[in-house]
């Protein structure tokens, strides 16, 4: 596989996270590696820093990882997860300020064509405008 930016989906709900990842695979294809996580450490609704770190590590590439999140805690926990990873990895991880589903599709489409991380992020965030 060519080295493309990877995507991580972080939702409060494991079902939402999995569903968004499914949509990306179906709409965009499998040129982009995508990992997802959702739920708190007990499996209820929420997010989990350890699981986010594991999802990032699963698809990490020096080309970059773009994270898409749903609500507040998902963003805060994703920022925490990024900071807890080694600095050389953290430098290649961005959290997109974009709606989860739309942002995931936009970011993945851009990533599937080989774009760099900053382009992937700005494409995801473009949908806001």
């Amino acid at each position: 596989m060519t080295d493309n930016v990877s995507i991580v989906i972080v939702s409060h709900s494991p079902k939402v996270a999995e569903g968004v990842a499914d949509m990306v695979r179906q709409m965009v294809g499998d040129e982009v590696r995508i990992a997802f996580c959702g739920g708190n450490p007990d499996g209820g609704l929420g997010t989990n820093v350890g699981a986010i770190m594991a999802a990032i590590e699963e698809v990490y590439t020096p080309k970059g990882v773009a994270i898409l999140v749903d609500l507040g805690g998902a963003e805060t926990n994703s920022e925490m997860a990024r900071e807890m990873l080694p600095a050389e990895m953290a430098a290649n991880i961005v959290i997109c300020n974009a709606p989860l589903v739309e942002g995931a599709i936009m970011a993945s489409t851009e990533a599937s064509c080989g774009a760099d991380l900053e382009t992937v992020r700005s494409t995801a965030e473009e949908f806001q405008a």
Partner: peptide, 14 residues
């Protein structure tokens, strides 16, 4: 609609 828009964009980018 959305799904073909993704395909068209990906194709154009190639």
């Amino acid at each position: 609609h959305a799904r073909p828009a993704v395909k068209l964009t990906k194709l154009a980018k190639s």
